[in-house]
Each structure stands twice: as structure tokens, then as C-alpha cells.
Design a binder for these strands. Structure first.
Length: 109
DNA sequence: CTCTTGACTGAGG
DNA sequence: GCCTCAGCCAAGA
């Protein structure tokens, strides 16, 4: 099917669903994979609509491994709990040992 | 069409 | 390593 058939948001959701268990990626990595390397902000913006969808938004963080989007989740530590539940070490909203859990769609997909 | 907002990123001090 | 500034692009009013 034509890629243009899917909206930018929909593409983001598709890639987010492809994130392996216990792994995380950055908005920029997803944006780059979609061909919109400069639209990293749009990726996060798109995640606003991820609520109600099967998109593991908790696996998407900024390039520093910081849980910048945790404020968009319900509780104050829901996002962190989800990550830790998958074996990702998180301290103070920041992912530890990021290089070990980082997943780049344009590299491994 | 114009203006504002934003879960980002890279460069410079 | 930390802080600040500017560029980027799409969606909504």
C-alpha cells in the first residue's frame, strides 16, 4: 500500500508498536526512520493520541534517555514502572545503561 | 492564510 | 557536563 495512505501519526504508532520488549528508542530515531528526521517533536506530539491505542509510548524517550513524556501518563511514576517491569533500569525519570537498551529502528529494523 | 504550541535536537558558551 | 538559543515541522484555532 502507499505510505502516503498512512498519516504521520499513524506511522509513528506503527513504529512504536515494533519496539521490542525491554527496549527503548528516541523520538528522533523514529522520526528519522519515517523520513522526517527534523520532525522528532511531531513524534512526541503524535503520541498524544496514543492514549487508547496499543502504542507502548513508555518505550519512547528523548535522546538523553530522559522520560520527558511521563507527565502525559496518568500517575507520577507509571511510565517508569512500566519500563522497570520490562527490565529497564530507570532512576529519577532517566534510563540507566541507555546504550544497552537503546533500539534504533533504522539500524535493527 | 497566520499564529501558537510542543512527549525534540544540535550547536555554542 | 550544564545551560541557553535557535531551527525544525505538523496540527489546531
Amino acid at each position: 500500500m502507499k505510505p502516503e495512505t498512512l498519516n504521520f501519526f499513524d506511522k509513528v504508532y506503527e513504529v512504536a508498536k515494533l519496539i521490542p520488549y525491554g527496549r527503548v528508542t528516541s523520538y528522533g530515531a523514529i522520526a528519522k526512520y519515517l523520513g522526517a528526521a527534523r520532525s522528532a517533536r511531531m513524534v512526541g506530539y503524535a503520541m498524544n493520541g496514543s492514549g487508547g491505542k496499543d502504542v507502548p509510548a513508555h518505550r519512547v524517550v528523548n535522546r538523553k534517555g530522559l522520560l520527558t513524556g511521563k507527565h502525559h501518563f496518568e500517575g507520577t511514576n507509571l511510565m517508569q514502572q512500566l519500563l522497570e517491569s520490562e527490565g529497564v533500569e530507570v532512576v529519577e525519570n532517566q534510563i540507566q545503561n541507555l546504550e544497552s537498551v537503546y533500539w534504533d529502528p533504522s539500524e535493527e529494523l
